[in-house]
Amino acid sequence: MKLGFLVDLNLCMGCKGCEVACKVENEVPLSSWRLRVKYIDIGTFPDAKREFTPLRCNHCENAPCERICPVSALHYLENGIVNVDSSRCIGCAGCMMACPYGAIYMDPETNTADKCTYCAHRIESGMMPACVVICPVQANIFGDLDDDTSHISQYIMAHQGAVQVRKPEKHTNPKHFYVGGGTQTLDPLAQQRIEGYSLFNNITHLDHIGDPNHGVIDRFLAPFESHEKLDNKSFVDFDNHESEGGH
């Protein structure tokens, strides 16, 4: 079995449902993403159009992240998924330097590397990844590439000549395909990031990698810090009435 993904960019309407479903399913912290949908405007008015590109881990057959990981925290599952064992990760960020697709992030809560796992926990239970289930137009197609009768295999066969992968020159042999893409949508160097053009979000770069509140010394002290035990009362019994004006 070799699991793979295909996104038909002709169908994607940029609703970001997959992005939200992924966040919820995998409890992805703020400032991090496993799957994101990028909006790209192409052309000039009045001949302009907006394209949407969902981006996630490519689960490469020849994964640079797996090769560089010094402790095998990134490893292959039998079904071809490149999985992460965050309990083993040392947080060296080598995988972030190796992944040509920028798909790996340093989780700010665990200070370990993390990424899309094709919802390996759901697949183990016979379910589809959360992003596939939520997609209203079935633009996300997921399945076994080794099975000629699977939906993804048949989709690839039906769209021969139009199926692309990102950065094929890297020889990573990605198992994530696109239909309906082009250089402008799939090549980040063919896109400009112009100050002031971004919708809703003016933050273009994170100013931290991993936990923003954990400096170098804190990383050493973290295991010895005591955490107050939380219960339901902790969340309702605030001790800030004075500063809030006594309400």
């Binding site: 402008q184 990031r193 933050i203 994170l206 990698i209």
Partner: peptide, 12 residues
Amino acid sequence: HAVVTLDVALPG
């Protein structure tokens, strides 16, 4: 060329 009009913050 294409212009990115909505994206997440990228790592520095």
